[in-house]
């Protein structure tokens, strides 16, 4: 089923509503990075991922690895939208016994392919999945989303070097370049200089897009899938805004890992068009 740009924007809007509801309900969690990634996840899941929501462990599925596993509300919201889990399940976020663990966990939640939460791990895991797919002779792909602050973990570069060495054309990375990490802006915490040049120097195919412009997002996903970019690993550097869609969260390091209060929640629902002002 073909999705129009406006269809995808609506999916992302609905996911944003769920993200804010989840962190507000739990009074904990990570809204900023969930909101920055969600346009990318909406387009990826709704138009590219070869998955079966009613058969989440289907062997020839594409894999999605959320390496920035704390941005789990974003992933849970799209999994609900796709039908892997129910919208009722979203209420279990950070609740004892709930399938929506604080950080995405493959043992708890259908549709989650990697137990993340510790930064710098997902790309290596994705490399393992991509290597296994190649050995199997399968055309399944491993999509990995990493964060920009996460690139400060040295293990990311171990994986980047190894994936290029092994020419893993079925490994596709999306970088959520939202410019903010836990304590402050990335530029303050640890400058990363020329990020596209770094990945190119490691042997990757690289493209930059605006991660909130759905037309550009679709072009970026086309780039990841293009046959000429399947000679080795590819990365889509998506420039995003932390907290995108909620005015007081945007570009605000305070909302990396903090929940809105009741008043802020109400305002967010107004901004997302869920309630009238």
């Amino acid at each position: 089923m073909t999705k129009s740009i406006s269809d995808l924007e609506e999916i992302a809007r609905k996911c944003r509503v769920e993200i804010v509801k989840m962190v507000h309900r739990a009074q904990a969690g990570h809204p900023g990075g969930s909101l920055s990634e969600i346009d990318l996840l909406a387009a990826l899941y709704a138009t590219r991922m070869r998955v079966r929501p009613d058969e989440p462990k289907w062997g020839d599925r594409d894999l999605f690895i959320l390496s920035k596993g704390h941005a789990s509300p974003g992933m849970y919201s799209i999994l609900a939208e796709m039908g892997f889990i129910s919208h009722e399940d979203l209420k279990s976020y950070r609740v004892l016994g709930g399938i929506c663990q604080g950080h995405v966990d493959m043992k708890w939640c259908p549709g989650v392919d990697f137990s993340a939460g510790s930064l710098g791990m997902g790309l290596s895991f994705g490399m393992g999945c991509a290597t296994a797919a190649r050995l199997d002779g399968s055309d399944r792909r491993a999509f990995v989303m990493i964060g920009d602050g996460e690139m400060q973990e040295g293990s990311v570069w171990e994986a980047a070097m190894a994936a290029a060495h092994h020419e893993l054309g079925n490994l596709k990375v999306i970088l959520d370049r939202n410019r903010i990490q836990n304590d402050d802006f990335c530029e303050v915490q640890m400058r990363m200089f020329d990020i596209p040049a770094k990945w190119k120097a490691f042997g990757w195919n690289v493209k930059e897009i605006d991660g909130h412009n759905m037309t550009e997002v679709m072009e970026g996903l086309d780039f990841l899938e293009a046959p000429e970019n399947c000679n080795g690993p590819s990365i889509l550097i998506a420039h995003t805004i932390k907290g995108a869609g909620i005015s007081y969260m945007e570009n605000n390091p305070s909302f990396h890992g903090a929940a809105p209060n009741d008043e802020q929640f109400h305002q967010a629902m107004i901004e997302l068009g869920e309630v009238e002002a």
């Binding site: 290596s124 895991f125 490399m127 393992g128 290597t131 293990s155 070097m161 190894a162």
Partner: peptide
């Protein structure tokens, strides 16, 4: 699979392969 001198990567490549049936 040669992982170079990169033990952290090696273990998680293993994890991804184990999750894929290897």
């Amino acid at each position: 699979i040669s992982c170079g001198i990169g033990e952290q990567n090696m273990l998680l490549v293993g994890a991804g392969m184990a999750a894929s049936g290897y």
